[in-house]
Design a protein around this nucleic acid. Structure first.
Length: 433
RNA sequence: GGAGAGAUGGCAGAGUGGUCUAAUGCGCACGCCUGGAAAGCGUGAGUACUCCAAAAGGGUACCGAGAGUUCGAAUCUCUCUCUCUCCGCCA
């Protein structure tokens, strides 16, 4: 959430930056300011009344202890009316405050100055490219074909169990998925300095609000109900990403400056309803309702945010380099960024069987937008409480990584060559039927 | 699921309607003392919102969360959340 004081002091600058997203969010600023003004006005009035009440109440106490009961009763009667007015104003304050907060929670983060303006993914500049599209002496097969031929994924039975968009990994497919997860976790913990955590896979609503998933994207989540108790709906949700629990680990805390930076890596399955996306690229493993992901989260001092973002992208790129996969890194333009992000890089891996790049990582600097929502702060050397910057990045998303891997390393005989770094995990150098 | 106990500042812990502006202890920071330290002594120390052009300085709220009673609530009432102990069930 944006800083209300910043909005109050520099409304035009904020409006301008929000307008770059092209979603019309800047129009909400006037309402925010109106609610804010109403709140402060009522607050000033009610606090003056409370000060009076506190003073008179003390006087009553003193009179009572001096047995001057008649005088005390007179003052009580006088104060009763103040009490009613206070109740009334308290309600007003709470009302406009809630309205203001509700709006603030719906306003996206302001894009960083280094983010290029644009309206869609077509405007995202490519920052760099690694490797090249592999050449095959035969027409490369798409992953669905490879999976079926090699028995890696049973699409039909996956759908039979849970509906379309759910995968049943089988045999080498299941082992490859598990090997990739462990490979990624080991890489980030031993080479990149991340601490591994394993969070709950069901997460509270307040945490979804904390990272900015809610209230705007509530329709995209799977909500959980406890047994037959319909009253429990809306409290817990299946994770859309490990970012939701992990970024919230320190919510409502005041960290010591020396604790920063904090770097966490977590594996989790990710559940996405993908409402409204039915029929769009649903074949195969590219858009599914459940996939595995290894997520990177950083909590850092504001001044190191930019460097930490670059490093995080490099950490995610390392995965693809080690697996010998061609990829490109793009910088998302203002119109293509996620709700909570101030700056985002996407990493897209080449999938020869698809003839297209697939997004396998999205690394974002959310600055203090999320920390504000979850009231996470740190105390500086000078004793000042500040909001840290929170960054998140996929390191990386599976399913699509799986796709790129088997499509890239497929051989003429229909087998898959296992890249060297993965061989110790899979205990083979070749996946054959 | 059943029964019971509990939640107070960095920590421990007192406080059952009116100088609570939350005792006391430990820890912490600074100062005095000292050759230096310890001890001792002294001082200070939370969070948020808000008023003021700003600074200085005020005000309000916060004793797990929310609602209520009252002129006045850490204290009384109700609801909720979490923690602990025992029992049951269970991977």
């Amino acid at each position: 959430m944006l800083d209300i004081k910043l909005i109050r002091d520099h409304p035009d600058a904020i409006r301008q930056r929000l307008a770059l997203r092209g979603a019309g969010d800047e129009k909400l600023i006037d309402d925010v300011l109106a609610f804010d003004e109403a709140r402060r006005q009522a607050l000033t009035e009610v606090e003056t009344l409370k000060a009076t009440r506190n003073r008179v109440s003390k006087e009553i106490g003193a009179l009572m202890s001096q047995k001057k009961l008649a005088e005390a009763e007179a003052k009580k009667a006088e104060t009763r009316a103040i009490g009613d007015r206070i109740t009334e104003l308290d309600k007003k304050v709470a009302g406009v405050e809630e309205a203001r907060e509700k709006l603030l929670l719906r306003i996206p983060n302001a894009p960083h100055a280094s983010v290029p303006p644009g309206t869609s993914s077509a405007d995202n500049p490519e920052v760099r490219c690694w490797g090249q599209k592999p050449e095959f002496g035969f027409p490369p097969k798409p992953h669905v074909e490879l999976c079926m031929a090699l028995g890696l994924v049973d699409f039909d039975r996956g759908a039979k169990l849970s509906g379309s968009g759910f995968l049943l990994y089988t045999g080498w497919g299941a082992r490859l998925e598990r090997a990739l997860i462990q490979f990624l976790l080991d890489l980030h913990t031993t080479e990149h300095g991340f601490t591994e955590v394993s969070p709950p896979f069901i997460i509270g609503r307040h945490c979804m609000i904390g990272v900015g998933q809610f209230p705007k994207f509530e329709d995209q989540a799977y909500a959980v109900q406890e047994g037959l108790d319909a009253g429990t709906m809306g409290k817990l949700y299946l994770l859309p990403t490990a970012e939701a629990p992990v970024a919230n680990i320190h919510r409502e805390e005041i960290l010591k400056e020396t604790q920063l930076p904090i770097r966490y890596v977590a594996y989790s399955p990710c559940f996405r309803a993908e409402a409204g996306a039915a029929g769009v690229g649903t074949r195969g493993m590219i858009r599914v309702h459940q996939f595995d992901k290894v997520e990177l989260i950083k909590i850092v001092k504001p001044e190191t945010g930019s460097d930490e973002l670059e490093e995080m992208v490099a950490n995610a790129e390392k995965v693809l380099q080690l697996l010998g996969l061609h990829y490109r890194v793009v910088l998302l333009c203002t119109g293509d960024m996620g709700f909570a992000s101030a700056k985002t890089y996407d990493i897209e891996v080449w999938a020869p069987g698809q003839g297209q790049y697939l997004e396998v990582s999205s690394c974002s600097n959310c600055e203090d937008f999320q920390a504000r929502r979850m009231n996470l702060r740190f105390k500086t050397d000078t004793g000042e409480n500040k909001f840290p910057y929170i960054l998140n990045g996929s390191g990386t998303a599976l399913a699509r990584l799986f796709v790129a891997l088997i499509e890239t390393h497929q051989q003429a005989d229909g087998s898959i060559a296992v890249p060297a770094p993965l061989q110790p995990y899979l205990k083979t150098d070749r996946i054959k039927p």
